[in-house]
């Protein structure tokens, strides 16, 4: 079979075709905003963060101590009523050094790269990581397996948010 029979359409345009007005386009913006209910389990998680503590839920069947806390264990599919405080220290499971904003624009000259990481929290079950960011560390010195600790905002500035932890720094 000839390639012609397999492929049709897909007419390439350049940005210039559009800028010059040769190709007509219509632009529109969604212009929408959202607000989310925190839900039951995360509500308590945030309330505890405001107190400077991290709280998890434990499944009475599989005994997993889960972060973020949840109202039900998605593996055993039963409700979770047992709450456990865990430590604010943990281990870097993986990390990145990110030079790109959410919309794919590049960070500016002199702006620090973002340092997202998955951190396994001490006291939660193995592999129970949360995503957060790292601070007070040279990007090139970050290693997987590094021990880190939460750096909290001053109590008066906490709002009941994951950002009540400013970042995690190496221990």
């Amino acid at each position: 079979m000839s390639e012609k029979l397999k492929v049709s359409g897909g007419t390439a345009l350049s940005e210039e075709d559009i800028r010059s007005g040769k190709i007509f386009v219509t632009e529109d913006s969604l212009n929408c905003a959202y607000a989310w209910d925190t839900g039951v389990a995360i509500n308590r998680y945030l309330a505890e963060l405001k107190q400077g503590r991290i709280i998890a839920t434990e499944c009475r069947k599989c005994k997993r101590v889960m972060l973020p806390p949840r109202l039900f264990c998605e593996l055993c599919f039963i409700p979770c009523n047992t709450w456990r405080h865990v430590k604010d220290t943990g281990t870097i499971n993986t990390f990145s050094i990110c030079h790109v904003h959410w919309d794919a624009s590049r960070i500016k000259e002199g702006e620090d790269p973002h340092l997202p990481a998955v951190i396994e929290i001490d006291g939660a079950s193995e592999g129970m990581g949360i995503m957060h960011i790292l601070g007070e560390v040279e990007p090139e010195k970050i290693k997987i397996g590094m021990k880190v600790q939460a750096v909290w905002k001053p109590e008066t500035e906490r709002t009941g948010s994951i950002n009540d932890i400013k970042y995690f720094k190496p221990l």
Binding site: I23, S29, A35, D37
Partner: peptide, 18 residues
Amino acid sequence: NRYWNPGVGAFPVKNRYT
């Protein structure tokens, strides 16, 4: 129980249609 709007609720994107 409350709602959460941490200032990231906006979805500032647009579309361009040929």
